[in-house]
């Protein structure tokens, strides 16, 4: 008890970081993508849902700060009750608490608005989103959220170290990388490289048991309109068969690339 009390004091005095990790639930990367209702909705039949991989990199980094220096990690998602198993998984991975904002995500603007209402109520030192969700690939929630909160945003973040009350950050860009500094608080768009693949945490039995005892709070959504709507989906046209060229006929390949495909 005393220990816990001591810990909370530190958090309030901002000696330990408070981290919010935004989690989006996406179809497993091997899922077949199909649509129903006259191509107006994604077909969830037989689809397994996972933590968006970019969010998992971010969550893993947050847990690292928790284990190394006692950071407090909250995960949040905007979604209906079907997202709860994913939040439980985040708790099993090590998050301290989970919040579900009870709403159907309409678009990135809507999700970011809901998240910013929540983030305004607490003071987080670090808000982690993913570079993009692999379903709608909007790559927008983090940047919009940061701007709503008046905080800096760093996209494509693949390095994050704490140095007192400043962060040393790294951003992957086209053809190189950028090294940056920011003071607390900041919003990042996490991606691969932020942690190594081998550091991803597979929940063990103890984690899964503990997760059941951890708080998963459901909060109502704020009433607001989405900025856009999806009218319909379509799949790309089926591709023709591959043209096979014999391995002894390299000239044939070069000829096709030059004269048929016209790409050389």
């Amino acid at each position: 008890m005393t220990h816990r009390h001591f810990f909370i004091n530190f958090v309030q005095n901002n000696l330990f970081m408070k981290i919010l990790v935004c989690i989006s639930t996406v179809p497993d990367t091997t899922s077949k993508i199909n649509f129903v209702n006259q191509n107006q909705a994604f077909d969830t039949q037989g689809v397994t849902f996972i933590i968006n991989p970019n969010d998992e990199f971010g969550l893993t980094r947050a847990i690292w700060f928790q284990q190394k220096e006692g950071a407090d990690v909250t995960v949040v998602t905007v979604g209906d009750s079907s997202c709860e198993p994913i939040l439980r998984k985040c708790l099993a991975i090590g998050a301290d608490r989970a919040i579900r904002i009870d709403a159907t995500p309409m678009d990135g603007f809507y999700v970011a608005s809901q998240l910013s209402e929540l983030a305004k109520k607490e003071t987080y030192d670090l808000i982690i989103t993913g570079r993009e969700s692999i379903d709608y690939n909007g790559g927008m929630v983090g940047g919009i959220l940061a701007t709503f909160l008046g905080l800096p945003y760093l996209a494509n973040c693949n390095g994050l170290e704490k140095d007192g009350t400043t962060f040393n950050l790294e951003r992957e860009m086209d053809g190189g990388k950028e090294l940056l500094k920011a003071s607390f608080p900041i919003v990042i768009g996490a991606q691969k490289g932020l942690v190594e693949e081998k550091d991803l945490i597979i929940p063990n039995m103890r984690g899964i048991m503990q997760a059941r005892q951890k708080p998963l709070e459901v909060v109502p959504a704020v009433n607001l309109e989405a900025g856009s709507s999806i009218e319909s989906f379509e799949k790309p046209p089926a591709k023709g068969p591959v043209k096979l060229i014999d391995s002894s006929n390299i000239d044939g390949l070069i000829d096709l690339l030059q004269n048929e495909a016209k790409v050389l």
Partner: peptide, 20 residues
């Protein structure tokens, strides 16, 4: 304004309309 966008990492496209 309605546009065509790729989604599901290029496995599909959608038509999105802006309310603004």
């Amino acid at each position: 304004l309605t546009v065509k966008r790729s989604c599901f990492t290029n496995k599909a496209f959608n038509q999105s309309t802006s309310q603004k």
